[in-house]
């Protein structure tokens, strides 16, 4: 399938032209071009290690790109730090969440964006706690004591804090790196609804996920990364959920998987046994798959 780029009237707020990035000898991104428009949800999909997090770290100001150009409002820019990106109106939920474990919930929520009052610029603790409480309640998570360190909360609760924080502070672009990864069904649906709300409010949303169903529920356009390259950049009009799922899985692989797994007998209960290290048999990969993996590895090395 050929890549479809739709011609949209609005100018993109954020534009990446042939951006490349390397971690030493690992070329994590190569020639990546995407456009992020305000009032739209841009979904970025791809396998583990495809380069999704690297891509958003460049946009968030955590990494500086090595090739190509990034443009904010059409002006070429390099963010010196995440603080500079935030000043440009970009808020991010990182995959590793970026919370300080020993600090309380409300301090984490406002970290880097503290509210202050009075001539001494004292922290406005009462107001910060109130806002933090309101925002978390709106997300449907209950954290009874905002003075507790976040290190003691559940993974999903922490994720909700990071998401609520980005949504609260995002001025123009919100980036969410696998925001629903640790969430239950209820909270996931809240996050998806928030993404739609953020879009309606006129924000540009970059939504990274492994779940094509989630992506298709909210996405305006879809970018699939593979081994650091864009292999698909399509508008929703040009793509069905089935196509998206198929593209993500790399063609018929998914059909093969479902075919293969149909023989596993999910109802079976095996006899209990103690297993020596290394004695769980690996699933049999078919020759096509092995060949594909080898090809990809070669491609990596020659790149």
């Amino acid at each position: 399938m050929s890549a479809v780029t739709t011609d949209r009237s609005a100018a993109p707020v954020l534009q990446l032209d042939n951006v490349g990035f390397s971690y030493g000898n690992v070329h994590a991104l190569r020639d990546v071009s995407i456009n992020v428009r305000q009032g739209e949800v841009t979904c970025v999909l791809g396998d583990n290690g495809a380069g999704k997090s690297t891509l958003i770290k460049i946009i968030a100001g955590l990494h500086d790109y090595t090739d190509g150009a990034m443009k904010l409002d059409g002006v070429e820019c390099r963010f010196a730090s995440p603080r500079a990106a935030q000043a440009g109106g970009i808020a991010t939920v990182y995959q590793d969440l970026a919370l300080a474990p020993l600090m309380s919930v409300w301090r984490n929520f406002f970290l880097g964006n503290e509210l202050r009052k009075g001539p001494l610029r004292t922290l406005d603790i009462a107001r910060m706690k109130r806002i933090c409480d309101e925002e978390l309640t709106k997300m449907g998570v209950v954290i009874p004591d905002l003075d507790r360190p976040v290190g003691g909360l559940s993974g999903g609760q922490r994720q909700c804090i990071a998401i609520a924080r980005a949504i609260y502070f995002g001025a123009r672009v919100i980036i969410l790196d696998e925001p629903t990864a640790a969430l239950g069904v209820k909270q996931s649906s809240v996050v998806l609804r928030y993404i739609v709300k953020a879009r309606d409010a006129g924000l540009g949303v970059i939504f990274i996920t492994h779940n094509p169903h989630h992506a298709y529920l909210v996405g305006n356009h879809f970018v699939i990364l593979k081994l650091g390259r864009v292999v698909l950049d399509a508008h929703r009009d040009a793509l069905t959920l089935e196509q998206l799922t198929r593209e993500m899985a790399g063609g018929q692989e998914l059909e093969e998987l479902s075919h293969e797994l149909s023989g596993v007998d999910p109802g079976r209960v095996a006899a209990p046994a103690e297993v020596a290290p290394g004695h769980v048999e690996s699933p049999v990969l078919n020759p096509d798959e092995l060949a594909a993996i080898e090809r990809e590895e070669e491609e990596e090395q020659t790149a």
Partner: peptide
């Protein structure tokens, strides 16, 4: 507590 996280959310 976590310098990388602090930097990521905009702490100098």
């Amino acid at each position: 507590g976590d310098a990388a996280a602090a930097r990521a959310v905009g702490v100098p």
